[in-house]
Nucleic acid binder design. Structure first.
Lengths: 122, 122
DNA sequence: CGGCATCCTTGGAGATACTG
DNA sequence: CAGTATCTCCAAGGATGCCG
């Protein structure tokens, strides 16, 4: 794939631009959910609906971080937020279709981890 | 593992410690390969052996970053480095077993991306 | 060609405190 | 309980330059 015409004289590092933006869907996927917390939180929501503080406990994220990541995930359509204004307010987070579609990824990750994480001597 | 006794009066955010370190293998896996470049590079190496500059082109990472991530990946046993001291030096990177074992993850990621990335309107 | 040393900018993320 | 607002810190990562 001669994607790089060698004719380019100004072949600086800054010239790569965004040619890697859509190399393949994996890259795109990574760009969207490639951060630690996003993965951790989404994986945590596989169990089903969870509350803010539940997630805080299970993931270990701070309120600040959790709030932000949750916000981002909702914006990108990975999760859905349902608020109940009853007693002292309760908001539940749950995976959307888009988010649930990531389950195979987590399964694969889980399987890999089971196979290699232990023997690596963390 | 009741690491968090609800009876704790000093329930500060800093008390969570590492109870999330081994919640499940997914978290562990994410800790190891949860960064953008690691995923991107590993995915790129699925095609087979590649040279430094090949990776630089295809991933769009700078030499500095690439070098570092590659180094980390090698340390963790994901990839293998073969250097040929011929003419102007050539080093090839290739996935190890451990690294190849991640392929299912990338496949899942790829499939997900194909399904959802386009319709999301990047 | 491969890749390390340096500088510098950004944002991810924790601590803490405060509000509805 | 569920956030939001700040402040701060540090690592990730890009740009450049240089060297084997």
């Amino acid at each position: 794939m001669a994607t790089q015409p060698p004719s380019a004289d100004t072949e600086k590092e800054s010239d790569v631009e965004q040619q890697n933006a859509d190399v393949c869907t994996v890259v795109g996927a990574v760009e969207e959910v490639g951060s630690k917390w996003k993965l951790v939180i989404l994986n945590d929501l596989r169990d089903g609906e969870k509350r803010f503080n539940e997630l805080k406990r299970s993931t270990g994220a701070s309120s600040y971080t959790l709030s932000r990541v949750l916000d981002g995930l909702e914006e990108n359509g990975f999760i859905d937020n349902r608020k109940e204004l009853e007693s002292p307010v309760a908001s539940y987070y749950i995976l959307t279709e888009k988010g649930s579609a990531l389950c195979p990824v987590f399964d694969a990750l889980d399987e890999w981890g089971a196979d290699w994480l232990e023997s690596t001597g963390e």
